[in-house]
C-alpha cells in the first residue's frame, strides 16, 4: 500500500535518507519484530521501533508494572502501576504511532511456547533479565533460523550481539554455559543506571531497523561492550564455535 500523506509527514526525517526512502519505509511498515522483555531494554527498543513505523510489534512479558521499574522502564508510568507490562506498553506504543499493531503476550516464555511465539516474526529482540531466558531464546532462534539481537546490562555496563543464521556466532557460541544464577552478577542486587539499558535498547532497535532495511553492518560476529563510566564502546570480534551445542556443525 502506498504511503499516505500523513505517513510521508510522520516519517519525513527517515524517508529523506537514501538508506530508507519509500522502499525501506514500506519494508518497516510490513515488518514484524518480537520484543521479549518489556523492561529496561525493551522500553526504548519498543518506543524507537514504533516511532520508526515497524508495522507489527510483538511484546512478551509476564510481569506487571512495579514502582521499582520506573527508574529505567520508560514505556511505563506511575498511573500504570499494577498493570500488565504488555498492556501498559501497547497503549503507549499505539498512542505514539497508530500505524503500529502491537500484539501483547502476557506470559512467561517456556520451551513449550517459545517456538510458536517467534515463528511469525522477522526479527527478535532479546531484552530479558534472566540468563535462563537468554539461553532459551537463543536456542529457539537458532533452531528456527530466526535472527535476533541480544542485549544485557548491569550497573554502568552493557553488551550486545546480533545473531543471523549461518552468518556468525550465536549467544551460546559466546557464552557456552549458563552461569549459576545465584553467583552471577545480578542487576537486582548490583543495580543499573537507567540510561544504560536506554543506550543498549536503542541500539537493539537500530540493529532491527538495519536488518529489516538491509542497511549497514550488523553486530554479527562482533560483540559490543559498553562502559558508561568511560563512554567506551568496544567491539570484540567473536568467532563461531564449531562445537557449539546450539549452532555448531557437530
Amino acid at each position: 500500500m502506498p504511503l499516505s500523506e500523513n505517513q510521508k509527514q510522520r516519517y519525513a526525517r527517515q524517508l529523506c535518507m537514501p538508506e530508507i526512502d519509500i522502499t525501506g519505509q514500506e519494508k518497516l511498515l510490513s515488518s514484524k519484530v518480537l520484543i521479549i522483555g518489556a523492561g529496561g531494554l525493551g522500553s526504548p527498543a519498543a518506543l524507537y521501533l514504533a516511532a520508526a513505523g515497524v508495522g507489527t510489534i510483538g511484546l512478551a512479558d509476564g510481569d506487571k508494572v512495579d514502582l521499582s521499574n520506573l527508574q529505567r522502564q520508560i514505556l511505563h508510568s506511575t498511573e500504570k502501576l499494577g498493570v500488565k507490562k504488555v498492556d501498559s506498553a501497547a497503549e503507549q506504543l499505539e498512542s505514539l504511532n497508530p500505524d503500529v499493531h502491537v500484539i501483547p503476550y502476557p506470559r512467561v516464555l517456556t520451551e513449550e511456547n517459545i517456538s510458536d511465539l517467534i515463528a511469525d516474526y522477522d526479527f527478535v529482540l532479546e531484552c530479558t533479565d534472566s540468563f535462563e531466558a537468554k539461553y532459551l531464546i537463543n536456542d529457539a532462534c537458532v533452531r528456527a533460523k530466526k535472527p535476533f539481537c541480544h542485549g544485557a546490562v548491569i550497573r554502568f555496563f552493557g553488551q550486545m550481539l546480533t545473531y543471523v543464521p549461518e552468518a556468525g556466532p550465536c549467544y551460546r557460541c559466546a557464552f557456552r554455559h549458563a552461569p549459576d544464577e545465584e553467583k552471577a552478577p545480578d542487576a537486582k542486587k548490583l543495580g543499573v543506571i537507567g540510561a544504560v539499558p536506554g543506550v543498549i535498547g536503542c541500539l537493539q532497535a537500530l540493529e532491527a531497523i538495519k536488518y529489516l532495511t538491509g542497511t549497514g553492518e550488523l553486530l554479527v560476529g562482533r560483540f559490543l561492550s559498553f562502559d558508561g563510566r568511560t563512554m567506551d564502546f568496544e567491539i570484540i570480534e567473536l568467532p563461531r564455535d564449531p562445537d557449539c551445542p546450539a549452532c555448531g556443525k557437530t
Binding site: 522483555g37 523492561g39 529496561g40 531494554l41 525493551g42 531484552c127 530479558t128 533479565d129 534472566s130 540468563f131 537468554k134 542485549g151 544485557a152 546490562v153 548491569i154 555496563f157 552493557g158 553488551q159 557464552f175 552461569p179 552471577a184 552478577p185 545480578d186 542487576a187 537486582k188 543499573v192 539499558p197 561492550s225 570484540i236
Partner: peptide, 10 residues
C-alpha cells in the same frame, strides 16, 4: 587475554 563476566540484566 580478554575477560568478560556474565551480564544478564535487562
Amino acid at each position: 587475554v580478554a575477560l568478560f563476566p556474565p551480564v544478564g540484566g535487562g
